[in-house]
Design a protein around this nucleic acid. Structure first.
Length: 509
RNA sequence: GGAGCCGUAGCCAAGUGGUAAGGCAGAGGUCUGCAAAACCUCCAUUCCCCGGUUCAAAUCCGGGCGGCUCCUCCA
């Protein structure tokens, strides 16, 4: 049986007990991207937050069906592809593929179903028709609008009344509509835009209806969890509720709503107009994709997350060669975990896992602690702390073996290695091979430093010779040269290993 | 104008009624030819401020102050 979970439900605005519709199974829908440009780290944050929740549910024993859509019929796609003189669907597909490649890089599991608007037009037309039949929508000059007044609970999710919205409206009012808040389910075709036939003439879906249609198609009219970025609460999710319940009944649709916090830069939201949008690749090249993931899961998914950017500034105050201190710290911490795993692996490989039997008590705590923390609204930061404790125990066992039964020590370390990986999986980290990770990290940092590996090797050999000859003055001098290059020496009984450290951050005025 | 979030050590960050997790940085130590790594010890009588409720509050309530967001496309 799966571990009972408490989660924060944005509709009820409190932590509630999660009761799946079918025991031990979860149907989950996440609003996916509109692929018209390369993905930025805001996309990654949302995807990673809910990938974490999905993995945590699986870790806790649930069978999860995870649906994440691709909104491939949308103005932004039409505009961008038209400007480039390319077919809109080809354009959307290319960016959808790029999005998926980026998310894979960040350890996001592919969705079980990835529905696209372009292949669900029939379902969208059907649900629109049903809304008209039920008196919740009206056709108007080839468009179809949802009539907000027909759905009294409107505004419940975002905690606003229609009156409040009316008062502060900044929307350009379309006079034909019955209410300014009525929104389009179907938009009549405009010249040069793709369109599909419908009972109201050729046209295409409005923005919100696709999620109502696709969630019902793949998860049913009623399902467990609907998730998305906090920014989607209004109007997108509000409208989804109105459409779905309008079409299928008041008790239908998502049992729980979950929203992740915003991603900010130096305290301000990321937005294209501010020019502070950061691409996925830029981050991956700087600190490695897993460090970004580790940084994200070190924060609770509902908290806003802030990026610091530092670096020398040019005359206009714009940062050149941006650095991300927090992400670099995450990268170093990740390196600690992988180094610990590597030590464990080598120890177990050399002498076995000790077979069955008793363990040191600290070596069997991790999984239980992780389960408890994840079951309480997916508290990943607590899990990260528990991982740290487990790694510390492992390093201690590796350093100090005396006074301890040999088999107990081996078993404990083998267990810690397994549990670190199992719990790491739940967070989407520590899945790489430690040796490969170390090499990739060294290569990445070496590249950033412009390191000449042959030169490093030569210096390492020179130092080894000097040490062999007990010429420690010379050995230390060579190490000084290496340090200046950013190379850190790690002497071990097995030989000398090395790694690259990040350069100090120069903060410009 | 309406709605909401947030404010915990030098920094990052959990905790949301029972007496402040964890990480980074810092100090000391073990180990080491010396280092690095790893490990050990120390590092918030206190959670923006002021009132209130309570046996008990960082956590609940009221009032301030400060920061952010949504109401328009946005992950």
């Amino acid at each position: 049986m799966a571990t009972p979970v408490r989660l924060y439900d944005s509709l009820q605005q409190q932590k509630v007990a999660f009761t799946p519709i079918v025991p031990d199974r979860v149907g989950m829908y996440l609003c996916g991207p509109t692929p018209y440009a390369p993905a930025h780290i805001g996309h990654a944050y949302s995807a990673i937050c809910f990938d974490l929740i999905r993995r945590a549910l699986i870790f806790l024993g649930y069978q999860v069906k995870f649906v994440r859509n691709i909104t491939d019929v949308e103005d932004k796609i039409f505009n961008a592809s038209a400007a480039a003189g390319e077919d809109w669907l080809t354009w959307a597909n290319r960016y959808a593929d790029a999005y998926n490649a980026d998310m894979r890089m960040f350890g996001v599991l592919p969705p079980d179903v990835e529905p696209r608007v372009s292949t669900h037009i029939d379902q969208i037309v059907a649900i629109t028709q049903r809304l008209i039949e039920r008196g919740k929508a009206y056709a108007l000059d080839g468009d179809v609008y949802f009539e907000v007044a027909s759905f009294p609970p409107y505004g419940r999710l975002s905690g606003q009344s229609l009156d409040d919205l009316q008062a502060g409206s900044r929307v350009a009012v379309d006079e034909r509509k019955k209410s300014p808040f009525d929104f389009a389910l179907w938009k009549g075709a405009k010249p040069g835009e793709p369109s599909w036939p419908s009972p109201w003439g050729p046209g295409r879906p409005g923005w919100h209806i696709e999620c109502s249609a696709m969630s019902a198609t793949h998860l049913g009219e009623t399902f467990d969890i609907h998730a998305g970025g906090k920014d989607l609460v209004f109007p997108h999710h509000e409208n989804e509720i109105a459409q779905s319940q309008g079409a299928h009944g008041d008790e239908t649709f998502a049992h729980h709503w979950m929203h992740n916090g915003f991603l900010n830069f130096d305290g301000t939201k990321m937005s294209k107009s501010l020019g502070n949008v950061l691409g996925c690749n830029e981050i991956a090249a700087a600190v490695g994709p897993e460090a970004l993931r580790f940084y994200f899961v070190s924060h609770h998914y509902r908290s806003p997350i802030d990026f610091e950017i530092e670096g020398p500034r040019d005359a206009d105050g714009k940062i050149v060669d941006p650095r991300f201190p927090a992400l670099e710290a995450a990268d170093r911490r990740l390196d600690y975990f992988y180094a610990t795993l590597r030590r464990i692996d080598e120890f177990v490989a050399a002498g076995g896992d000790g077979g069955e039997g008793a363990l040191v008590p600290e070596a069997e705590k991790l999984t239980g602690e992780a389960r408890e923390a994840l079951a309480d609204d997916f508290n990943a930061p607590i899990v990260v702390a528990a991982l740290g404790e487990a790694a510390k125990v492992a390093n201690r066992l590796l350093d100090e073996g005396k006074g301890l039964d040999k088999a107990v020590r081996r078993r404990s370390l083998a267990r810690l290695g397994r549990d670190l990986r199992a719990v790491g999986w739940a967070l989407g980290v520590l899945g790489d091979d430690p040796v490969r990770y170390a090499h990739a990290r060294r290569a990445r940092l070496g590249k950033r430093r412009g390191l000449d590996v042959a030169q490093v090797q030569a210096l390492l050999e020179a130092r080894a010779e000097a040490r062999k000859a007990k010429d420690f003055t010379r050995a230390d001098a060579v190490r000084g040269e290496l340090t200046a290059l950013g190379v850190e020496i790690l002497d071990t009984p097995a030989g000398t290993d090395w790694r690259v450290v990040e350069p100090a951050i120069a903060v410009g005025a």
